[in-house]
Design a protein around this nucleic acid. Structure first.
Length: 643
RNA sequence: GGGCCCAUAGUUCAGCUUGGAUAGAAUGGCUGCCUGCGGAGCAGUUGGUCGAGGGUUCGAGUCCCUCUGGGCCCGCCA
């Protein structure tokens, strides 16, 4: 909040000076100086304007500061305005550097952080309604690390958007009528696989994915008649009413519940699960197909290799036309995605009823669509027709997502109504692949494959990190009861994994390595939790409480360091929300924790003899904790009072 | 053949949107710091021709072009 105020004031100041100089509205930028000795905020205005005056940037800067900026500051100070800026100077490098008034700055920063219930809030969304789709894993297998990246990215985006006043609904789309489901149904119905896992306890999603799905794919190679069965099953699934379809539906629900259990374990939140089969069975496709024809976005191809198919015209030159309805009248994969996308943003009437699917970990209700009107529960939230749809799915789907986005953008002239939030997939390091029994020649990494069983299972991974966390916690706190150790280890494991999956840029291919993933030191989730636990211990042991004291006593570098970070929180949140980059919050919170750890090592609090100073430092720690709590919430990391 | 993404320290990555000050973290190696609030920490040190070449600019890790290396996508599969 506070840093934003400084920026505003400096902006205002320079604008006024530019007006006086005779260049009103001239473009300039304010940026963070790379070093503390350059002040708190810098402007490049001298580089811009010196050209016009045929002067060196430094020369111009000096003149500008002396004759235009300083007089205004002085004047305003006399009138009692501009409380934030304490000084301005021209640097030989050419920048004009501003310094903040530390006393006022600390005062406002800390009281805001401690007292303001909406600390960190910035209204980016203005109540805009967003349908955010993520996870959407085929319901025939358990989640692996790659899926976790999707879940966590999606969930952090959800948290950030929700926090910045977007009305977000999180959708998990279930492809229950596709080939992958058909595969395991073939296995159960025609290849003699038992429906119950032979070795209990084993999660059902795990059994279907790691065993049934892998084995049936091996059987296809030696038994072609099984492959024909697959076609048959697929048709049954799309028709929807047969015994096979009902059987499949039961299997899908069982797998889905197990998958969602893993996601809940990672503290992901959902609002709605919807099923592809229902989109096919509803009139959603017909309606959508009608307006596609109306708008002349599709055409019946008469000749060439796609004769008899309905196709979408190529978007760019060189692209091929895309079949959406086959010559036998059945729908392709992308065809099923178009009505879903149209439904998300309200381009078609909502054919669904809604009923409760389940409660979930955060005491909210997870809903599901149904075509059975009698099951509709009136109190359901509004799901269809959001102002914007965001789909989190990896970049291998870019081409298809691009086609969907371009179709929707042609309906109304709004470009951003449908957005694909892509990211590069997770692959396995050669070492990890080797540990899984796969040789990959001399390649650096290998793509995961559910069909071949080359993957790192998500539950296994959480358990593995948890085991390491458990060792660490119990060695430090041998007296903790069993349940407490377990809860703490779980929370630490989740924070380590969540942090690890969002700290990288979306366009970075994560090469996952098991050995590295269990590291709990350095730039990791537990580092943040540890800083918080240390801070909490001081607050717990202190008899002082936060109260209004002279915060000018907080003038050491470590103290000011924390205050500077805290003061920028809302700017960081705004930036993350606008650019949809969760990584930005991760970088911030790491900087926040580091600033505290530096303070902690250098500055005594409980042992400080001067009571005023002690109270000021306690206040600082309060503010730090508040800031870390809110930022951690955005990442889905739980701050721990002890660990 | 067409398209998308990546390349910065031994390793994993920030920084590129909007060009500007001595290119930053983490990790690894080495060295210090617990009879001081929790050492999952802190400090120091080591380590970089920012893939190559050209261009634009007073100024390029950042913008443009070409090339090289790596990943991915391009079916009447899903």
């Amino acid at each position: 909040m506070t840093f934003r105020k400084l920026v505003d004031e400096v902006q205002q100041l320079i604008s006024t000076a530019l007006f006086n100089l005779g260049h009103p509205g001239h473009k300039f930028e304010l940026l963070d100086p790379p070093k503390p000795e350059f002040g708190d905020l810098s402007s490049n205005i001298a580089f811009e304007l010196s050209k016009l005056y045929d002067a060196k940037p430094y020369q111009f800067a000096q003149e500008f500061v002396e004759s235009y900026l300083s007089p205004i500051i002085k004047d305003e100070h006399e009138k009692g305005f501009l409380s934030m800026i304490s000084s301005v100077e021209a640097h030989p490098g050419g920048y004009i550097n501003f310094r903040v008034n530390n006393d006022t700055f600390s005062e406002i920063t800390l009281s805001k952080a401690i007292e303001d219930p909406s600390y960190g809030f910035w209204d980016v969304g203005k109540g805009k309604r967003v349908n955010l789709e993520h996870t959407s894993v085929n319901p025939n297998k358990a989640l692996h690390v790659g899926h976790l990246r999707n879940v966590i990215l999606g969930d952090v985006i959800y948290r950030i958007l929700q926090f910045t006043n977007h009305k977000v609904r999180v959708l998990n789309y279930v492809d229950d009528s596709g080939l992958q489901v058909a595969d395991i149904i073939v296995a159960f119905k025609f290849a003699g696989f038992p429906v119950e896992p032979p070795r209990k306890p084993m999660k059902f999603d795990r059994y279907c994915g790691d065993y049934v799905y892998v084995k049936i794919n091996e059987l296809y190679l030696t038994n072609p008649s099984l492959q024909e069965k697959r076609r048959y099953i697929l048709k049954e699934l799309e028709a929807g009413q047969s015994e096979i379809a009902k059987f499949a539906s039961a299997i899908v629900l069982r797998v889905l519940r197990d998958q969602v259990t893993t996601c809940w374990r990672m503290k992901a939140h959902y609002d709605l699960v919807n099923f592809e089969s229902q989109i096919v069975l509803s009139d959603l496709w017909e309606t959508t197909f009608d307006w596609l024809k109306d708008k002349r976005l599709v055409r019946l191809t008469m000749e060439g290799k796609n004769a008899g198919c309905w196709t979408i015209r190529p978007e760019r030159q060189g692209d091929e036309e895309k079949v959406i309805v086959r010559s036998d009248g059945t729908l392709t994969y992308i065809a099923k995605d178009i009505p879903y996308a149209a439904w998300k943003v309200g381009y078609v009437n909502d054919p669904f009823s809604y009923r409760e699917f389940s409660g979930q970990w955060d005491n909210t209700v997870l809903w599901t669509t149904t075509l059975d009107i009698s099951q509709n529960e009136n109190k359901h939230p509004e799901f269809a027709s959001a102002d914007k749809a965001i789909t989190v799915i990896d970049s291998r789907q870019s081409r298809l997502q691009c086609i969907i986005a371009s179709i929707l953008s042609k309906i109304q002239q709004s470009d951003n109504i449908y957005m694909h939030l892509g990211y590069e997939p997770v692959s396995l390091s050669s070492r990890t692949a080797h540990n899984l029994g796969t040789t990959i020649d001399d390649k650096r990494s290998i793509q995961m494959s559910g069909r071949k069983g080359i993957q790192v299972n998500a539950d296994d991974l959480i358990d593995l990190v948890k085991l390491k966390a458990h060792e660490e916690v119990s060695s430090r706190n041998p007296s903790y009861p069993k349940e407490k150790l377990d809860t703490l280890a779980e929370s630490i494991a989740v924070s380590a994994l969540r942090y690890n999956l969002i700290k990288y840029d979306l366009d970075k291919n994560i090469i996952f390595d098991i050995t590295e993933s269990i590291n709990l030191n350095g730039d990791t989730g537990p580092y943040l939790q540890y800083a918080y636990a240390r801070a909490q211990r001081i607050l717990e042991k202190s008899s002082e409480k936060y109260c209004k004291v002279s915060l000018s006593l907080l003038n050491s570098e470590p103290e000011i360091g924390i205050i500077k970070v805290i003061s920028k929180f809302d700017l960081v949140v705004e930036n993350a929300a606008r650019s949809l980059k969760p990584k930005i919050i991760a970088k911030y919170i790491h900087a926040l924790a580091t600033s505290f750890n530096v303070f902690y090592e250098t500055t005594p609090v409980l042992k400080e003899s001067n009571r005023e100073v002690r109270i000021a430092r306690i206040s600082l720690i309060w503010a730090f904790c508040k800031c870390l709590e809110v930022a951690s919430y955005l990442l889905g990391i739980q701050p721990l009072k002890e660990m």
